[in-house]
Design a protein around this nucleic acid. Structure first.
Lengths: 223, 223
DNA sequence: GAGACTATCTATAAGGG
DNA sequence: TCCCTTATAGATAGTCT
């Protein structure tokens, strides 16, 4: 069997790619790469980043840590803080109730993962104390351990995110209701393809980055 | 003359850099790299991108093509605006988006866990094929494998639950909001782009990128 | 369109001025 | 803080599945 011939990576000029299909592939790959770089920057330097990308087709892709909205708010400088007597407070209890259940579930799983990770650690030290078994040195195990840590991190982030998403839900509801009420129109609607904005945050990335092939799942095609 | 000894580029773990000085260097380099990648993506694929970075010191760095503000406007108008007249549609969309994000996150973690489990399986078969390493036989590993499966199951359950809880949450919010709104305690928000931050656009980058050392001029130090 | 695979190209960690 | 160098880790163009 002959080796597979490959031209390998070729140098390209940084100019508009004309071949549509080619452009799509490049966009997808580089977008992933960009988001991954961003997530690494977040982790390494503890900074907050927001990225928004509009594809030629008008599709939106975004990355945010902790999330795009908060970054934008901060950028636009001082989003007026909600009043103490705003209706958001009225929803606090209910939101907490809903979130509590999810958090509880997450907490259990987190414990599981943490326990697993600890087991991995002890195996790791066994490995270190037993260098003669060289194949233990293979990155497989080490990777496994690291991945578990990543999973744990991702889980913890997710846990936080449950709260965040819940808040977002409530806020969005509030805003739209307010706007609608102001306009005095409740029965009008239009069918603009409200394609959900693709949002990713560092958690996804962190987890995905550790994955075998560096593939992120947060961008399901569309372009 | 002896060759200059250099460790060359070393591998680093993607985790918070503790050494302040080191962090600063890395932040600077990677920020530049990120912006350069973004500018290349703009050129290659003709997309529009906005990036906002808050350094640990609270300094703002941004990249935008054509400029950050327009990206933000577009981003903000894309979410709430299309259905401003129909709060229920918006809530629906928002709910879907929120749930999607959580689900996505969960999906990623699930994949992680699954990958980990698979690795465990292959290690397991290696173990079987290599009985000489008797301590591999310890139940620790086997146990880990089984636990991972449990984690996976739990995650899948959780994933289902996300939808359910979100629906509950939105309903509850809507109800209380209507009541609150009737009471007339609403405050409206607006987006005002006011700030003097460091902003760069693709032109700077493109020019700078071509410059001798890849240094961009849009970041005058500060950190 | 998303993954996988390689050969290459590019970014960057260290270290020194 | 910026600039430069080196060696290497990491990203990715081209291709096929």
């Amino acid at each position: 069997m002959a080796k597979k011939p490959s031209m390998g990576r070729q140098k390209i000029k940084i100019q508009k790619i004309e071949v549509k299909n080619h452009l799509q592939v490049t966009f997808s790959k580089r977008r992933s790469g960009l988001f991954k770089k961003a997530s690494e920057l977040c982790t390494l330097c503890g900074v907050e980043i927001g990225i928004i990308v509009f594809s030629p087709a008008g599709k939106v892709f975004s990355f945010g840590h902790p999330n795009v909205e908060s970054i934008i708010d901060r950028y636009l400088s001082r989003n007026p803080a909600p009043n103490a007597n705003d209706p958001f407070h009225l929803m606090e209890a209910q939101r907490n109730a809903s979130v509590r259940e999810l958090n509880q579930q997450l907490g259990h799983i987190l414990n599981e993962v943490e326990a697993e990770r600890k087991r991995g650690e002890s195996l790791d030290s066994m490995r270190k104390a037993n260098q003669s078994h060289y194949w233990w040195e293979s990155p497989i195990n080490k990777l496994g351990l690291e991945e578990l840590e990543q999973v744990k991190e991702a889980m913890e982030e997710l846990k936080k995110n449950v709260n965040h998403q819940a808040a977002k839900l409530v806020n969005a509801s509030a805003t739209s209701l307010f706007m609608a009420n102001r306009a005095g129109v409740f029965d009008h609607y239009e069918t603009k393809p409200t394609h959900g904005v693709v949002t990713s945050n560092i958690n996804n990335i962190a987890a995905a980055a550790a994955a075998a092939n560096g593939n992120f799942g947060y961008c399901h095609g569309f372009f």
